[in-house]
Design a protein around this nucleic acid. Structure first.
Lengths: 294, 294
DNA sequence: GCAGCTCGATGCCCATGAGGCATCAATCTA
DNA sequence: TAGATTGATGCCTCATGGGCATCGAGCTGC
Protein backbone atom coordinates (compact mmCIF):
# COMPACT_ATOMS: atom_id res chain seq x y z
CA UNK A 1 0.00 0.00 0.00
CA UNK A 2 3.01 2.33 -0.01
CA UNK A 3 5.43 3.82 -2.46
CA UNK A 4 8.36 1.54 -3.23
CA UNK A 5 11.70 2.08 -4.88
CA UNK A 6 10.44 0.20 -7.94
CA UNK A 7 7.83 2.93 -8.41
CA UNK A 8 10.45 5.64 -8.21
CA UNK A 9 12.81 3.80 -10.55
CA UNK A 10 9.98 3.35 -13.05
CA UNK A 11 9.06 7.00 -12.82
CA UNK A 12 12.63 8.16 -13.32
CA UNK A 13 12.98 5.92 -16.37
CA UNK A 14 9.78 7.31 -17.87
CA UNK A 15 10.66 10.89 -16.98
CA UNK A 16 14.09 10.56 -18.54
CA UNK A 17 13.08 8.93 -21.78
CA UNK A 18 9.55 10.36 -22.01
CA UNK A 19 8.66 7.15 -23.80
CA UNK A 20 7.00 4.18 -22.11
CA UNK A 21 8.28 1.40 -24.36
CA UNK A 22 11.88 2.56 -24.27
CA UNK A 23 11.70 3.17 -20.53
CA UNK A 24 10.28 -0.33 -20.11
CA UNK A 25 13.20 -1.79 -22.06
CA UNK A 26 15.61 0.08 -19.85
CA UNK A 27 13.92 -1.42 -16.80
CA UNK A 28 13.82 -4.89 -18.38
CA UNK A 29 10.05 -5.19 -18.06
CA UNK A 30 7.27 -5.17 -20.61
CA UNK A 31 5.54 -1.91 -21.45
CA UNK A 32 2.15 -2.81 -19.90
CA UNK A 33 3.82 -3.51 -16.56
CA UNK A 34 5.43 -0.10 -16.65
CA UNK A 35 2.17 1.63 -17.55
CA UNK A 36 0.59 0.01 -14.54
CA UNK A 37 3.46 0.84 -12.20
CA UNK A 38 3.23 4.51 -13.15
CA UNK A 39 -0.55 4.47 -12.80
CA UNK A 40 -0.16 2.87 -9.38
CA UNK A 41 2.40 5.44 -8.30
CA UNK A 42 0.06 8.22 -9.36
CA UNK A 43 -2.81 6.61 -7.49
CA UNK A 44 -0.76 6.20 -4.32
CA UNK A 45 0.53 9.74 -4.46
CA UNK A 46 -2.88 11.06 -5.40
CA UNK A 47 -1.15 13.14 -8.05
CA UNK A 48 -0.94 13.02 -11.82
CA UNK A 49 2.76 12.89 -12.73
CA UNK A 50 2.83 12.23 -16.46
CA UNK A 51 0.60 13.82 -19.07
CA UNK A 52 0.40 11.16 -21.74
CA UNK A 53 -1.35 10.54 -25.00
CA UNK A 54 -0.41 8.01 -27.64
CA UNK A 55 1.74 10.67 -29.29
CA UNK A 56 3.12 12.66 -26.45
CA UNK A 57 4.50 12.00 -22.98
CA UNK A 58 5.43 14.88 -20.74
CA UNK A 59 5.70 15.60 -17.04
CA UNK A 60 3.21 17.56 -15.03
CA UNK A 61 4.40 20.13 -12.54
CA UNK A 62 4.13 17.51 -9.81
CA UNK A 63 6.19 15.17 -11.97
CA UNK A 64 8.89 17.78 -12.42
CA UNK A 65 9.04 18.18 -8.65
CA UNK A 66 9.13 14.43 -8.05
CA UNK A 67 11.91 13.72 -10.55
CA UNK A 68 14.86 15.11 -8.57
CA UNK A 69 13.37 13.81 -5.32
CA UNK A 70 13.02 10.34 -6.78
CA UNK A 71 16.56 10.43 -8.12
CA UNK A 72 17.82 11.50 -4.72
CA UNK A 73 15.92 8.69 -3.01
CA UNK A 74 17.27 6.07 -5.40
CA UNK A 75 20.77 7.44 -4.99
CA UNK A 76 20.40 7.27 -1.20
CA UNK A 77 19.27 3.67 -1.44
CA UNK A 78 22.13 2.83 -3.76
CA UNK A 79 24.60 4.44 -1.45
CA UNK A 80 23.12 2.56 1.50
CA UNK A 81 23.49 -0.75 -0.32
CA UNK A 82 27.03 -0.14 -1.48
CA UNK A 83 28.34 1.21 1.78
CA UNK A 84 26.78 -1.63 3.71
CA UNK A 85 28.24 -4.22 1.34
CA UNK A 86 31.64 -2.58 1.46
CA UNK A 87 31.68 -2.60 5.26
CA UNK A 88 30.44 -6.16 5.43
CA UNK A 89 33.13 -7.27 3.00
CA UNK A 90 35.76 -5.40 4.96
CA UNK A 91 36.79 -3.24 2.01
CA UNK A 92 35.71 -0.15 3.89
CA UNK A 93 35.90 0.44 7.58
CA UNK A 94 38.31 0.97 10.40
CA UNK A 95 41.01 -1.09 12.04
CA UNK A 96 42.98 -0.16 15.12
CA UNK A 97 46.41 -1.70 15.35
CA UNK A 98 49.02 -1.57 18.10
CA UNK A 99 52.64 -2.59 17.76
CA UNK A 100 55.92 -2.70 19.65
CA UNK A 101 59.45 -1.98 18.40
CA UNK A 102 60.28 -5.41 16.98
CA UNK A 103 57.10 -5.34 14.88
CA UNK A 104 57.58 -1.89 13.41
CA UNK A 105 61.28 -2.59 12.79
CA UNK A 106 60.38 -5.97 11.39
CA UNK A 107 57.43 -7.44 9.55
CA UNK A 108 54.70 -4.84 10.22
CA UNK A 109 55.51 -2.22 7.57
CA UNK A 110 55.35 -4.80 4.79
CA UNK A 111 52.13 -6.26 6.17
CA UNK A 112 50.48 -2.84 6.33
CA UNK A 113 51.67 -1.91 2.85
CA UNK A 114 50.30 -5.13 1.41
CA UNK A 115 46.93 -4.71 3.16
CA UNK A 116 46.57 -1.08 2.16
CA UNK A 117 47.25 -1.99 -1.46
CA UNK A 118 44.26 -4.35 -1.53
CA UNK A 119 42.08 -2.34 0.90
CA UNK A 120 42.72 1.32 0.15
CA UNK A 121 39.49 2.48 1.82
CA UNK A 122 40.18 0.94 5.19
CA UNK A 123 41.22 3.51 7.72
CA UNK A 124 43.98 2.15 9.95
CA UNK A 125 44.84 3.65 13.31
CA UNK A 126 48.33 2.75 14.49
CA UNK A 127 49.53 3.12 18.04
CA UNK A 128 52.81 2.16 19.69
CA UNK A 129 52.35 0.15 22.87
CA UNK A 130 54.53 -2.27 24.91
CA UNK A 131 53.68 -5.91 24.71
CA UNK A 132 52.05 -6.13 28.13
CA UNK A 133 49.80 -3.10 27.60
CA UNK A 134 48.86 -4.54 24.21
CA UNK A 135 47.67 -7.73 25.86
CA UNK A 136 45.38 -5.74 28.12
CA UNK A 137 44.15 -3.61 25.22
CA UNK A 138 43.38 -6.63 23.02
CA UNK A 139 41.58 -8.40 25.86
CA UNK A 140 39.57 -5.30 26.66
CA UNK A 141 38.60 -4.89 23.01
CA UNK A 142 40.20 -1.46 22.88
CA UNK A 143 42.21 -2.53 19.89
CA UNK A 144 41.41 -4.84 16.97
CA UNK A 145 44.81 -6.44 16.61
CA UNK A 146 48.13 -6.13 18.40
CA UNK A 147 51.65 -6.97 17.21
CA UNK A 148 53.52 -8.07 20.28
CA UNK A 149 56.08 -10.49 21.64
CA UNK A 150 54.45 -13.89 21.81
CA UNK A 151 53.24 -16.24 22.80
CA UNK A 152 49.88 -14.83 23.86
CA UNK A 153 47.76 -17.71 25.07
CA UNK A 154 44.53 -16.59 26.65
CA UNK A 155 40.95 -17.82 26.36
CA UNK A 156 39.13 -16.03 23.56
CA UNK A 157 42.29 -14.76 21.96
CA UNK A 158 43.62 -15.90 18.60
CA UNK A 159 47.14 -15.27 17.45
CA UNK A 160 49.59 -16.04 14.68
CA UNK A 161 53.36 -15.73 14.74
CA UNK A 162 54.30 -13.32 11.98
CA UNK A 163 58.04 -13.64 12.42
CA UNK A 164 60.53 -15.65 14.45
CA UNK A 165 63.91 -14.05 15.00
CA UNK A 166 67.06 -15.17 16.65
CA UNK A 167 68.90 -12.95 19.09
CA UNK A 168 71.98 -11.03 18.06
CA UNK A 169 74.46 -8.84 19.86
CA UNK A 170 74.94 -5.16 19.08
CA UNK A 171 78.38 -3.73 19.85
CA UNK A 172 80.05 -0.37 19.58
CA UNK A 173 82.11 -0.38 16.37
CA UNK A 174 85.31 -0.16 18.33
CA UNK A 175 84.46 -3.09 20.65
CA UNK A 176 87.02 -5.84 21.08
CA UNK A 177 84.42 -8.48 19.99
CA UNK A 178 83.40 -6.55 16.87
CA UNK A 179 85.85 -8.45 14.74
CA UNK A 180 84.34 -11.89 15.50
CA UNK A 181 82.08 -13.48 12.92
CA UNK A 182 79.71 -14.71 15.63
CA UNK A 183 79.77 -14.04 19.33
CA UNK A 184 79.04 -16.67 22.01
CA UNK A 185 76.68 -15.17 24.57
CA UNK A 186 79.02 -16.22 27.38
CA UNK A 187 81.64 -13.77 26.12
CA UNK A 188 79.33 -10.94 27.18
CA UNK A 189 79.47 -12.07 30.82
CA UNK A 190 81.42 -9.06 32.01
CA UNK A 191 80.15 -6.52 29.52
CA UNK A 192 78.04 -3.54 30.61
CA UNK A 193 74.55 -3.95 29.14
CA UNK A 194 72.21 -1.39 27.62
CA UNK A 195 68.64 -2.73 27.62
CA UNK A 196 65.07 -1.51 27.31
CA UNK A 197 63.57 -0.39 30.60
CA UNK A 198 61.82 -3.02 32.65
CA UNK A 199 58.35 -1.58 32.52
CA UNK A 200 58.06 -1.42 28.74
CA UNK A 201 60.38 -4.23 27.74
CA UNK A 202 59.53 -6.83 30.38
CA UNK A 203 58.92 -9.84 28.11
CA UNK A 204 62.10 -9.26 26.15
CA UNK A 205 64.08 -8.60 29.32
CA UNK A 206 62.88 -11.93 30.73
CA UNK A 207 63.91 -13.63 27.52
CA UNK A 208 67.39 -12.08 27.61
CA UNK A 209 67.79 -12.84 31.32
CA UNK A 210 66.82 -16.46 30.75
CA UNK A 211 69.26 -16.80 27.86
CA UNK A 212 72.11 -15.32 29.89
CA UNK A 213 71.28 -17.40 32.92
CA UNK A 214 71.40 -20.49 30.71
CA UNK A 215 75.07 -19.76 30.00
CA UNK A 216 75.79 -18.90 33.61
CA UNK A 217 75.58 -15.16 34.17
CA UNK A 218 73.18 -12.34 34.86
CA UNK A 219 73.55 -9.30 32.60
CA UNK A 220 74.89 -6.23 34.35
CA UNK A 221 72.56 -3.43 33.12
CA UNK A 222 74.28 -0.05 33.25
CA UNK A 223 71.80 1.88 31.18
CA UNK A 224 68.09 1.58 30.27
CA UNK A 225 66.27 3.17 27.35
CA UNK A 226 62.60 3.48 26.46
CA UNK A 227 62.86 2.54 22.83
CA UNK A 228 65.10 0.97 20.22
CA UNK A 229 66.51 4.27 19.04
CA UNK A 230 67.60 4.98 22.58
CA UNK A 231 69.20 1.57 23.00
CA UNK A 232 71.13 1.78 19.76
CA UNK A 233 72.18 5.36 20.48
CA UNK A 234 73.58 4.37 23.86
CA UNK A 235 75.44 1.43 22.37
CA UNK A 236 76.84 3.66 19.64
CA UNK A 237 78.01 6.03 22.35
CA UNK A 238 80.04 3.17 23.78
CA UNK A 239 78.09 2.85 27.04
CA UNK A 240 77.62 -0.85 26.64
CA UNK A 241 76.46 -3.72 24.47
CA UNK A 242 72.93 -4.97 23.90
CA UNK A 243 71.03 -7.97 22.68
CA UNK A 244 68.39 -7.39 20.07
CA UNK A 245 66.47 -9.35 17.48
CA UNK A 246 68.21 -10.38 14.34
CA UNK A 247 66.07 -8.84 11.61
CA UNK A 248 65.13 -5.74 13.54
CA UNK A 249 68.77 -4.90 14.28
CA UNK A 250 69.58 -4.86 10.61
CA UNK A 251 67.56 -1.69 10.18
CA UNK A 252 69.98 0.09 12.52
CA UNK A 253 73.25 0.54 10.77
CA UNK A 254 74.90 3.71 11.74
CA UNK A 255 78.61 3.22 10.99
CA UNK A 256 79.33 3.10 14.72
CA UNK A 257 77.49 -0.06 15.82
CA UNK A 258 78.13 -3.61 14.75
CA UNK A 259 75.59 -6.43 14.73
CA UNK A 260 76.77 -9.99 15.21
CA UNK A 261 74.80 -13.21 15.54
CA UNK A 262 74.99 -15.02 18.84
CA UNK A 263 76.86 -18.26 18.38
CA UNK A 264 75.22 -20.46 20.97
CA UNK A 265 71.67 -19.24 21.60
CA UNK A 266 68.70 -21.11 20.14
CA UNK A 267 66.08 -18.80 21.63
CA UNK A 268 63.75 -17.23 19.14
CA UNK A 269 61.56 -14.19 19.60
CA UNK A 270 58.11 -14.64 18.10
CA UNK A 271 56.57 -11.39 16.87
CA UNK A 272 52.93 -12.29 17.15
CA UNK A 273 49.66 -10.76 15.94
CA UNK A 274 46.81 -11.28 18.44
CA UNK A 275 43.10 -10.45 18.38
CA UNK A 276 39.93 -11.41 20.16
CA UNK A 277 38.21 -14.46 18.68
CA UNK A 278 34.80 -12.81 19.12
CA UNK A 279 35.73 -9.65 17.27
CA UNK A 280 33.36 -9.77 14.30
CA UNK A 281 34.86 -6.80 12.48
CA UNK A 282 34.93 -7.76 8.78
CA UNK A 283 37.98 -5.56 8.29
CA UNK A 284 39.80 -7.56 10.95
CA UNK A 285 38.83 -10.77 9.21
CA UNK A 286 40.30 -9.49 5.94
CA UNK A 287 43.41 -8.28 7.74
CA UNK A 288 43.94 -11.66 9.36
CA UNK A 289 43.46 -13.35 5.99
CA UNK A 290 46.09 -11.05 4.55
CA UNK A 291 48.42 -11.96 7.43
CA UNK A 292 48.42 -15.64 6.66
CA UNK A 293 48.05 -15.31 2.90
CA UNK A 294 51.74 -14.71 2.54
CA UNK B 1 15.15 -9.12 -6.63
CA UNK B 2 16.13 -5.73 -5.28
CA UNK B 3 16.10 -3.85 -2.01
CA UNK B 4 12.83 -2.07 -1.36
CA UNK B 5 11.77 0.61 1.08
CA UNK B 6 9.86 -2.03 3.06
CA UNK B 7 13.17 -3.76 3.75
CA UNK B 8 14.75 -0.56 4.97
CA UNK B 9 11.72 0.33 7.08
CA UNK B 10 11.79 -3.14 8.63
CA UNK B 11 15.49 -2.86 9.33
CA UNK B 12 15.15 0.56 10.95
CA UNK B 13 12.34 -0.70 13.16
CA UNK B 14 14.44 -3.69 14.27
CA UNK B 15 17.57 -1.59 14.73
CA UNK B 16 15.71 0.94 16.83
CA UNK B 17 13.89 -1.44 19.13
CA UNK B 18 16.42 -4.31 19.00
CA UNK B 19 13.45 -6.59 19.49
CA UNK B 20 11.69 -8.42 16.66
CA UNK B 21 8.25 -8.76 18.19
CA UNK B 22 8.01 -5.13 19.24
CA UNK B 23 9.42 -3.96 15.92
CA UNK B 24 6.83 -6.11 14.15
CA UNK B 25 4.05 -4.49 16.17
CA UNK B 26 5.36 -1.08 15.21
CA UNK B 27 5.25 -2.09 11.55
CA UNK B 28 1.80 -3.67 11.94
CA UNK B 29 2.94 -7.06 10.71
CA UNK B 30 3.39 -10.40 12.45
CA UNK B 31 6.80 -11.26 13.84
CA UNK B 32 7.55 -14.11 11.39
CA UNK B 33 7.02 -11.77 8.45
CA UNK B 34 9.52 -9.35 9.93
CA UNK B 35 12.07 -12.11 10.58
CA UNK B 36 11.81 -13.07 6.95
CA UNK B 37 12.02 -9.52 5.67
CA UNK B 38 15.24 -8.96 7.61
CA UNK B 39 16.64 -12.30 6.45
CA UNK B 40 15.77 -11.35 2.89
CA UNK B 41 17.42 -7.95 3.22
CA UNK B 42 20.56 -9.61 4.54
CA UNK B 43 20.53 -12.09 1.68
CA UNK B 44 20.09 -9.37 -0.94
CA UNK B 45 22.81 -7.23 0.57
CA UNK B 46 25.02 -10.24 1.08
CA UNK B 47 25.74 -8.91 4.55
CA UNK B 48 24.75 -9.89 8.05
CA UNK B 49 23.12 -6.87 9.68
CA UNK B 50 21.70 -8.15 12.94
CA UNK B 51 23.40 -10.52 15.35
CA UNK B 52 20.47 -12.30 16.94
CA UNK B 53 19.81 -15.07 19.38
CA UNK B 54 16.61 -15.78 21.23
CA UNK B 55 17.87 -13.61 24.06
CA UNK B 56 19.81 -10.88 22.37
CA UNK B 57 19.50 -8.73 19.28
CA UNK B 58 22.27 -6.37 18.29
CA UNK B 59 23.62 -4.74 15.13
CA UNK B 60 26.72 -5.84 13.32
CA UNK B 61 29.18 -3.27 12.04
CA UNK B 62 27.46 -3.40 8.66
CA UNK B 63 24.12 -2.86 10.41
CA UNK B 64 25.45 0.18 12.21
CA UNK B 65 26.55 1.60 8.88
CA UNK B 66 23.24 0.82 7.21
CA UNK B 67 21.05 2.35 9.91
CA UNK B 68 21.68 6.04 9.16
CA UNK B 69 21.74 5.33 5.42
CA UNK B 70 18.40 3.57 5.62
CA UNK B 71 16.93 6.38 7.68
CA UNK B 72 18.16 8.90 5.13
CA UNK B 73 16.68 6.91 2.27
CA UNK B 74 13.30 6.64 3.98
CA UNK B 75 13.37 10.34 4.77
CA UNK B 76 14.17 11.13 1.14
CA UNK B 77 11.26 8.99 -0.01
CA UNK B 78 8.97 10.65 2.50
CA UNK B 79 10.04 14.07 1.39
CA UNK B 80 9.50 13.10 -2.25
CA UNK B 81 5.97 11.94 -1.50
CA UNK B 82 5.01 14.98 0.52
CA UNK B 83 6.49 17.54 -1.81
CA UNK B 84 4.88 15.91 -4.81
CA UNK B 85 1.49 15.80 -3.11
CA UNK B 86 1.77 19.39 -2.01
CA UNK B 87 2.61 20.57 -5.52
CA UNK B 88 -0.14 18.50 -7.06
CA UNK B 89 -2.65 19.93 -4.61
CA UNK B 90 -1.46 23.43 -5.33
CA UNK B 91 -0.54 24.12 -1.72
CA UNK B 92 3.10 24.52 -2.70
CA UNK B 93 4.44 25.94 -5.91
CA UNK B 94 4.78 29.07 -7.88
CA UNK B 95 2.39 31.49 -9.55
CA UNK B 96 3.33 34.42 -11.73
CA UNK B 97 0.81 37.24 -11.80
CA UNK B 98 0.72 40.47 -13.81
CA UNK B 99 -1.51 43.42 -13.13
CA UNK B 100 -2.27 46.93 -14.32
CA UNK B 101 -3.07 50.01 -12.26
CA UNK B 102 -6.82 49.49 -11.85
CA UNK B 103 -6.21 45.99 -10.50
CA UNK B 104 -3.61 46.91 -7.93
CA UNK B 105 -5.65 49.98 -6.87
CA UNK B 106 -8.77 47.85 -6.85
CA UNK B 107 -9.55 44.22 -6.14
CA UNK B 108 -6.11 42.60 -6.45
CA UNK B 109 -4.65 43.30 -2.98
CA UNK B 110 -7.63 41.68 -1.28
CA UNK B 111 -7.52 38.70 -3.64
CA UNK B 112 -3.82 38.15 -3.00
CA UNK B 113 -4.24 38.51 0.74
CA UNK B 114 -7.06 35.99 0.79
CA UNK B 115 -5.11 33.48 -1.33
CA UNK B 116 -1.94 33.84 0.69
CA UNK B 117 -3.87 33.20 3.88
CA UNK B 118 -5.00 29.78 2.63
CA UNK B 119 -1.86 28.99 0.59
CA UNK B 120 1.07 30.34 2.58
CA UNK B 121 3.64 28.16 0.79
CA UNK B 122 2.83 29.33 -2.71
CA UNK B 123 5.44 31.69 -4.04
CA UNK B 124 3.80 34.50 -6.00
CA UNK B 125 5.70 36.63 -8.49
CA UNK B 126 3.99 39.96 -9.21
CA UNK B 127 4.81 42.15 -12.17
CA UNK B 128 3.24 45.36 -13.37
CA UNK B 129 2.33 45.30 -17.07
CA UNK B 130 -0.07 47.23 -19.32
CA UNK B 131 -3.17 45.41 -20.46
CA UNK B 132 -1.99 44.82 -24.02
CA UNK B 133 1.39 43.41 -22.99
CA UNK B 134 -0.42 41.20 -20.47
CA UNK B 135 -2.53 39.72 -23.25
CA UNK B 136 0.62 38.76 -25.13
CA UNK B 137 2.25 37.40 -21.98
CA UNK B 138 -0.77 35.28 -21.05
CA UNK B 139 -1.10 33.94 -24.59
CA UNK B 140 2.62 33.15 -24.73
CA UNK B 141 2.40 31.36 -21.39
CA UNK B 142 4.97 33.71 -19.88
CA UNK B 143 2.59 34.41 -17.05
CA UNK B 144 0.05 32.26 -15.24
CA UNK B 145 -2.66 34.84 -14.78
CA UNK B 146 -3.04 38.51 -15.70
CA UNK B 147 -5.29 41.19 -14.21
CA UNK B 148 -6.15 43.48 -17.08
CA UNK B 149 -8.88 45.58 -18.62
CA UNK B 150 -11.40 43.21 -20.19
CA UNK B 151 -12.89 41.75 -22.06
CA UNK B 152 -10.23 39.33 -23.23
CA UNK B 153 -11.85 36.94 -25.66
CA UNK B 154 -9.33 34.69 -27.38
CA UNK B 155 -9.33 30.98 -28.18
CA UNK B 156 -7.76 28.98 -25.38
CA UNK B 157 -8.07 31.80 -22.87
CA UNK B 158 -10.36 31.77 -19.86
CA UNK B 159 -11.26 34.88 -17.94
CA UNK B 160 -13.46 36.16 -15.15
CA UNK B 161 -14.43 39.73 -14.39
CA UNK B 162 -13.25 40.47 -10.87
CA UNK B 163 -14.68 43.99 -10.69
CA UNK B 164 -16.84 46.30 -12.75
CA UNK B 165 -16.40 49.99 -12.13
CA UNK B 166 -18.07 53.12 -13.45
CA UNK B 167 -16.05 56.05 -14.64
CA UNK B 168 -15.55 59.12 -12.49
CA UNK B 169 -13.95 62.47 -12.98
CA UNK B 170 -10.96 63.66 -10.99
CA UNK B 171 -10.59 67.42 -10.59
CA UNK B 172 -8.15 69.80 -8.93
CA UNK B 173 -9.68 70.80 -5.57
CA UNK B 174 -10.05 74.41 -6.73
CA UNK B 175 -11.83 73.46 -9.97
CA UNK B 176 -15.09 75.22 -10.82
CA UNK B 177 -16.90 71.84 -11.11
CA UNK B 178 -15.61 70.54 -7.75
CA UNK B 179 -18.69 71.72 -5.95
CA UNK B 180 -21.12 69.65 -8.05
CA UNK B 181 -22.45 66.38 -6.57
CA UNK B 182 -22.14 64.65 -9.94
CA UNK B 183 -20.60 65.92 -13.16
CA UNK B 184 -22.09 65.33 -16.61
CA UNK B 185 -19.30 64.24 -18.98
CA UNK B 186 -20.29 66.90 -21.51
CA UNK B 187 -19.24 69.63 -19.05
CA UNK B 188 -15.64 68.53 -19.53
CA UNK B 189 -15.77 69.34 -23.27
CA UNK B 190 -13.39 72.27 -23.03
CA UNK B 191 -11.29 71.04 -20.14
CA UNK B 192 -7.63 70.18 -20.61
CA UNK B 193 -7.23 66.41 -20.02
CA UNK B 194 -4.50 64.53 -18.22
CA UNK B 195 -4.53 60.88 -19.31
CA UNK B 196 -2.32 57.81 -19.31
CA UNK B 197 0.02 57.65 -22.29
CA UNK B 198 -1.30 55.91 -25.37
CA UNK B 199 1.17 53.03 -25.44
CA UNK B 200 0.49 51.78 -21.95
CA UNK B 201 -3.12 52.92 -21.48
CA UNK B 202 -4.55 52.16 -24.94
CA UNK B 203 -7.65 50.17 -23.88
CA UNK B 204 -8.67 52.73 -21.28
CA UNK B 205 -7.94 55.62 -23.64
CA UNK B 206 -10.21 53.99 -26.24
CA UNK B 207 -12.90 53.65 -23.62
CA UNK B 208 -12.63 57.29 -22.55
CA UNK B 209 -12.52 58.50 -26.16
CA UNK B 210 -15.65 56.49 -26.97
CA UNK B 211 -17.49 57.87 -23.96
CA UNK B 212 -16.57 61.45 -24.83
CA UNK B 213 -17.41 60.99 -28.50
CA UNK B 214 -20.81 59.69 -27.39
CA UNK B 215 -21.53 63.09 -25.82
CA UNK B 216 -20.08 64.96 -28.77
CA UNK B 217 -16.46 65.87 -28.13
CA UNK B 218 -12.92 64.57 -28.28
CA UNK B 219 -10.88 65.09 -25.12
CA UNK B 220 -8.06 67.57 -25.53
CA UNK B 221 -5.08 65.82 -23.92
CA UNK B 222 -2.56 68.35 -22.63
CA UNK B 223 -0.46 65.97 -20.57
CA UNK B 224 0.23 62.23 -20.50
CA UNK B 225 1.55 60.16 -17.63
CA UNK B 226 2.85 56.62 -17.41
CA UNK B 227 1.00 55.58 -14.28
CA UNK B 228 -1.82 56.52 -11.94
CA UNK B 229 0.41 58.36 -9.50
CA UNK B 230 1.59 60.51 -12.39
CA UNK B 231 -1.96 61.21 -13.56
CA UNK B 232 -3.21 62.16 -10.09
CA UNK B 233 -0.12 64.24 -9.45
CA UNK B 234 -0.64 66.24 -12.62
CA UNK B 235 -4.33 66.76 -11.84
CA UNK B 236 -3.44 67.88 -8.29
CA UNK B 237 -0.99 70.35 -9.84
CA UNK B 238 -3.91 71.88 -11.72
CA UNK B 239 -2.72 70.89 -15.19
CA UNK B 240 -6.04 69.37 -16.13
CA UNK B 241 -8.80 66.94 -15.24
CA UNK B 242 -8.92 63.20 -15.78
CA UNK B 243 -11.33 60.35 -15.97
CA UNK B 244 -10.56 57.31 -13.86
CA UNK B 245 -12.34 54.30 -12.44
CA UNK B 246 -14.64 54.78 -9.52
CA UNK B 247 -13.20 52.43 -6.91
CA UNK B 248 -9.58 52.94 -7.87
CA UNK B 249 -9.83 56.71 -7.59
CA UNK B 250 -11.00 56.43 -4.02
CA UNK B 251 -7.55 55.31 -2.98
CA UNK B 252 -6.12 58.61 -4.13
CA UNK B 253 -7.29 61.30 -1.80
CA UNK B 254 -4.70 63.92 -1.33
CA UNK B 255 -6.54 66.99 -0.08
CA UNK B 256 -5.97 68.65 -3.43
CA UNK B 257 -7.95 66.44 -5.82
CA UNK B 258 -11.68 65.84 -5.85
CA UNK B 259 -13.40 62.74 -7.21
CA UNK B 260 -16.91 63.04 -8.58
CA UNK B 261 -19.15 60.47 -10.26
CA UNK B 262 -20.01 61.09 -13.90
CA UNK B 263 -23.71 61.86 -14.18
CA UNK B 264 -24.50 60.49 -17.58
CA UNK B 265 -22.06 57.71 -18.46
CA UNK B 266 -23.12 54.07 -18.23
CA UNK B 267 -19.78 52.66 -19.37
CA UNK B 268 -18.21 50.19 -17.00
CA UNK B 269 -14.58 49.11 -16.87
CA UNK B 270 -14.20 45.37 -16.28
CA UNK B 271 -11.05 44.45 -14.39
CA UNK B 272 -10.57 40.91 -15.61
CA UNK B 273 -8.38 37.97 -14.63
CA UNK B 274 -7.29 35.93 -17.64
CA UNK B 275 -5.29 32.71 -18.02
CA UNK B 276 -4.65 30.00 -20.58
CA UNK B 277 -7.21 27.21 -20.51
CA UNK B 278 -4.44 24.64 -21.03
CA UNK B 279 -2.34 25.82 -18.13
CA UNK B 280 -2.36 22.77 -15.87
CA UNK B 281 -0.61 24.42 -12.94
CA UNK B 282 -2.40 23.18 -9.81
CA UNK B 283 -1.58 26.43 -8.07
CA UNK B 284 -3.34 28.34 -10.83
CA UNK B 285 -6.38 26.09 -10.43
CA UNK B 286 -6.51 26.87 -6.71
CA UNK B 287 -6.02 30.56 -7.38
CA UNK B 288 -8.89 30.61 -9.88
CA UNK B 289 -11.07 28.73 -7.39
CA UNK B 290 -10.25 31.38 -4.82
CA UNK B 291 -11.18 34.10 -7.33
CA UNK B 292 -14.69 32.88 -7.83
CA UNK B 293 -15.18 31.59 -4.29
CA UNK B 294 -15.92 35.09 -3.12
C1' DG C 1 -7.95 9.49 -47.90
C1' DC C 2 -7.13 5.20 -46.26
C1' DA C 3 -3.86 1.47 -44.82
C1' DG C 4 -0.59 0.64 -41.73
C1' DC C 5 2.50 1.85 -38.39
C1' DT C 6 3.27 3.13 -33.31
C1' DC C 7 1.81 4.88 -29.13
C1' DG C 8 0.03 3.94 -24.20
C1' DA C 9 -3.99 1.44 -21.86
C1' DT C 10 -6.53 -2.64 -20.73
C1' DG C 11 -8.13 -7.63 -20.09
C1' DC C 12 -6.75 -11.87 -18.78
C1' DC C 13 -3.76 -15.14 -16.84
C1' DC C 14 -0.12 -17.10 -14.10
C1' DA C 15 3.84 -17.38 -10.99
C1' DT C 16 5.91 -15.18 -7.38
C1' DG C 17 6.10 -13.96 -2.89
C1' DA C 18 4.49 -11.33 1.19
C1' DG C 19 2.32 -12.25 5.22
C1' DG C 20 -0.64 -14.92 8.61
C1' DC C 21 -1.00 -18.95 11.93
C1' DA C 22 0.92 -22.72 14.26
C1' DT C 23 4.86 -24.43 15.99
C1' DC C 24 9.88 -25.24 17.02
C1' DA C 25 14.33 -24.91 19.45
C1' DA C 26 16.97 -22.18 22.41
C1' DT C 27 17.40 -19.66 26.47
C1' DC C 28 16.28 -17.39 30.59
C1' DT C 29 13.46 -17.25 35.04
C1' DA C 30 10.97 -18.81 39.00
C1' DT D 1 12.53 -28.55 36.27
C1' DA D 2 8.35 -26.21 34.44
C1' DG D 3 7.02 -22.30 32.18
C1' DA D 4 7.59 -18.13 29.63
C1' DT D 5 9.67 -15.66 25.96
C1' DT D 6 12.71 -15.11 22.21
C1' DG D 7 13.51 -15.38 16.99
C1' DA D 8 13.17 -19.06 13.19
C1' DT D 9 10.64 -22.23 10.28
C1' DG D 10 6.87 -24.91 7.83
C1' DC D 11 2.78 -24.47 5.62
C1' DC D 12 -0.86 -22.13 3.55
C1' DT D 13 -3.41 -18.32 1.31
C1' DC D 14 -4.19 -14.60 -1.37
C1' DA D 15 -2.63 -10.23 -3.27
C1' DT D 16 -0.07 -8.58 -6.90
C1' DG D 17 3.63 -7.90 -10.17
C1' DG D 18 4.42 -8.94 -14.68
C1' DG D 19 3.77 -11.29 -19.27
C1' DC D 20 0.99 -11.80 -23.69
C1' DA D 21 -2.58 -10.41 -26.62
C1' DT D 22 -5.20 -6.82 -27.92
C1' DC D 23 -7.59 -2.24 -28.04
C1' DG D 24 -8.40 2.54 -29.48
C1' DA D 25 -6.10 6.79 -30.72
C1' DG D 26 -3.25 9.30 -33.63
C1' DC D 27 0.42 10.01 -36.96
C1' DT D 28 2.66 8.85 -41.62
C1' DG D 29 3.11 7.57 -46.22
C1' DC D 30 1.46 5.79 -50.52
Amino acid sequence: MGIELRHLAAFVAVAESLHFRRAAERLHVAQPALSRTIAQLEARLGARLVERSTRNVRLTEAGRVLLPEARATLAAADRAVHRTRAVSEGTVGHLSVTYMDFAINGPLPAILARFRATHPDVEITLRHLWTERQREAVLAGEVDIGFLIGPFDAPGVRSVVVRRERLCVVLPAAHRLAAAERVPLGHLRDEPFVLGNLEAWAPFRRLVDDACRAVGFTPRVVQEAYNSDGIFGLVAAGLGVTVYVDGGARRYRPADVVVRPLADVGVEVATTAAWRADNRSPVLARFVEALSAD
